[in-house]
Amino acid sequence: MMSPSGVTSYDTGEPQNGTVVAEIAFDELIPAYRHELLLHCYRLLGSLTDAEDVLQETLLAAWRGLDGFQHRASVRSWLYRIATNRCLNALRDRGRRIPPEPRPPFQPPEPSRHGDVPWLQPYPDTLLEHVPDAEPGPEARYATREAIELAFVAALQRLPPRQAAALVLCDVLGYPLGAAAPMLDTTPTAVKGLLQRARTALGRHRGDARAEPPAPGSAQERHLVHRFAEAFTTDDIDTLVTLLTDDAWLAMPPAPHEYHGATAIAAFLRASAAWRADRRFELRPTRANGQPAFTWRLAGAVEPPAGVIVLTLTGDRLRGITRFHDDRLPRHFESSLADQAS
């Protein structure tokens, strides 16, 4: 949301004796922060749809609160404080907005377990391109790439919201405890406690360390992604199974069904292939959460794509296939990586 033309706001510099050092049109200030605030809201909410809604609430609150901004903090910190609290308010007031569970048109095999983050959505890399390429602060523990991966965002959703907010502010964005405390309306000591509990819980949710994925766009990544796409679109399930790690998973948000291990994944894929008969999937390459991805639909269908598939790679294998069943998502993605599947 932009302000009316000519409305004054404040300089983006650090405070100078608590006075306003310059006046800038609000609609000139916000574009510098809009994309990184959207990413911040997405990390905390796990849903791009919800993040877009809360971003609009954040910008409206910032616009209305201009008169109360006294440059006791940088504009960036001020906006992050508003965005963080709007996210926490949304989680407290609305709870998690669970989308309707899709029903498979065939009888699937019994799932390995039921997922606990059905609201999870992917984040288009085309939006990441607009986030300023700034180094995280000295307190940051996570590299930029790791801090946007789908598994990391999903793990954040399993933390209590204030713990997740403390971890993102300190360990992802690199704010020191003293700077994060006013953003959470608490003390540095309280933030330290939230952070310690969040780090312990996050490590438990994320599991053991794994081999690094191939570099984005590398020959190794392209080769693995091409093999997956070829096997998936031809229902060559035996070949697909050879690409999986021993602990691989297949998840399908917002459906809660998850299949863990090659045997369980293969059973689901065979049931799907049997129901489709000769109808196969059509994939178009894109990227999400810094990972290779596809929009997908039945080949020859005139309808828009039915969802998005995001691949989690480790070493030279696939560790995760997350197939999002939501036809609202593909509009956010551009099929601009045609060479990735070649």
Rank of each mutant, 00 (worst) to 15 (best):
S3Y: 11
P4D: 13
G6P: 04
S9G: 15
V20I: 12
V21M: 15
A22L: 09
A25I: 04
L29F: 09
P31N: 12
E36K: 15
L45W: 04
G46N: 06
T49H: 10
D50W: 00
L55V: 15
T58M: 12
L60M: 14
A61H: 09
A62P: 00
W63P: 00
D67C: 00
H71K: 15
A73N: 07
S74M: 11
T84E: 06
T84Y: 03
N85Y: 02
R86P: 07
C87I: 07
L88P: 03
R94D: 13
I98W: 01
P108E: 02
P109F: 04
P109H: 06
E110P: 02
L120M: 12
Q121N: 08
P122R: 14
Y123L: 10
P124S: 13
D125C: 12
D133Q: 13
A134N: 10
P136I: 12
R145T: 10
E146V: 14
E146W: 02
A147P: 07
L150T: 03
L150K: 00
F152A: 04
A154E: 15
L156C: 09
Q157R: 09
Q163C: 03
L167V: 01
Y175P: 03
Y175C: 07
L177E: 06
L177K: 08
A180K: 05
M183T: 05
L184K: 07
L184N: 07
T186A: 04
P188M: 08
K192G: 07
K192H: 07
G193K: 06
G193D: 05
Q196A: 13
A198N: 00
A201Y: 02
H205W: 07
A211H: 08
E212D: 13
H223A: 15
L224C: 07
R227L: 14
F228H: 14
A229W: 00
T234D: 09
L243T: 06
D246E: 14
D247L: 04
A248G: 08
L250G: 00
L250Y: 11
A251R: 08
H257G: 02
E258C: 13
H260D: 00
H260V: 11
A266H: 03
F268E: 08
A273D: 08
A273G: 09
R276T: 01
R280Q: 10
R284E: 11
P285H: 06
R287Q: 12
G290Y: 00
G290E: 01
F294R: 04
T295G: 06
A299I: 01
G300H: 03
E303C: 02
P305Y: 06
V308R: 03
I309Q: 09
L313T: 08
T314V: 10
T314A: 14
G315K: 08
G315Q: 08
D316W: 00
I321A: 05
H325N: 06
D326N: 12
R328W: 04
P330Q: 10
R331V: 15
F333Y: 14
S335P: 05
S336F: 01
S342N: 10
